[in-house]
């Protein structure tokens, strides 16, 4: 992978854990939509052939020495992108749920509006996206909790289809939630008074593998994320300065 030689350069980041069934197709789709844009797969110590399939499809692979979980995996990619001088990073999941055809729309909003983070949202427009009942309840709870914290509504706080600019990259290299990072990341950004926008996307069903959030883990997920949000509120720099 080369250093970003020109300004406004984009990197596509794909966190992957045991995604040998889908990763190659995802990389090829990204390359079709965004030719010549570097694709970095961060392999979270997969036990299958994710690394081999990713390399054969033309992706660069950052291999973690042991399993860190989604947050640690994504943060490793952000750190490398920041060190290589990239200005924008768009994260696409390795299971095929995120359709790369929306990447240009996300990038356009990042560049045009100057916002710090853009979220590919299933719920900006009613586009027939289906989600499980448990997840739908979770999203509803998170929307309610986040609305007063963020000062504006967020329709799809659990979406991992996100793009960030360089300022956000810098923040995330120092502080990024390690488990279930999407929602807490919004609060981390709010602490810095950063702006986010949502772009309508349609999610697909995963091509292979299993979701990390099973039905049993859902309750733990909700409690963990709410606790993480609460802890991040306590870290608000404005509050610290007032003391």
């Amino acid at each position: 992978m080369r250093k970003a030689g020109q300004p406004n350069q984009l990197m596509i980041l794909i966190p992957a854990f045991n995604e040998e069934g889908a990763i190659a197709d995802v990389i090829r789709e990204v390359n079709q939509v965004m030719p010549r844009v570097p694709v970095l797969v961060v392999d979270d110590a997969s036990r299958d052939d994710t690394v081999g399939r990713a390399k054969s499809a033309g992706g660069d692979v950052l291999r973690l020495p042991h399993h860190l979980g989604l947050g640690g995996c994504v943060q490793a990619g952000y750190k490398l992108a920041y060190e290589l001088g990239y200005d924008y990073v768009i994260r696409v999941d390795g299971d095929g749920q995120h359709d790369p055809k929306y990447i240009p729309a996300l990038l356009d909003v990042l560049r045009r509006t100057g916002c710090h983070m853009v979220i590919g949202s299933r719920f900006v427009q009613k586009n027939g996206t289906h989600t499980s009942a448990v997840r739908a309840i979770g999203i509803w709870v998170f929307r309610l909790v986040l609305r007063p914290i963020l000062g504006k509504p967020v329709r799809d706080p659990t979406s991992g289809f996100v793009g960030v600019n360089k300022e956000t990259l810098q923040v995330f290299t120092g502080s990024f939630p390690l488990e279930y990072p999407e929602i807490e990341a919004l609060v981390v950004l709010q602490r810095k008074r950063f702006r986010f926008e949502e772009v309508p996307v349609q999610m697909r069903k995963r091509k292979a593998g299993r979701s990390t959030i099973t039905a049993i883990k859902s309750l733990y997920y909700i409690i963990h994320v709410l606790l993480g949000v609460f802890v991040n509120i306590l870290k608000f720099e404005g509050r610290r300065r007032k003391k």
């Binding site: 992978m1 961060v42 660069d60 020495p65 042991h66 860190l68 750190k79 490398l80």
Partner: peptide
Amino acid sequence: NIAMAQRLAILEFELQS
């Protein structure tokens, strides 16, 4: 441990490049 694992992965990546 997480920071060290990330640093190790990045250094390995750069060495390979």
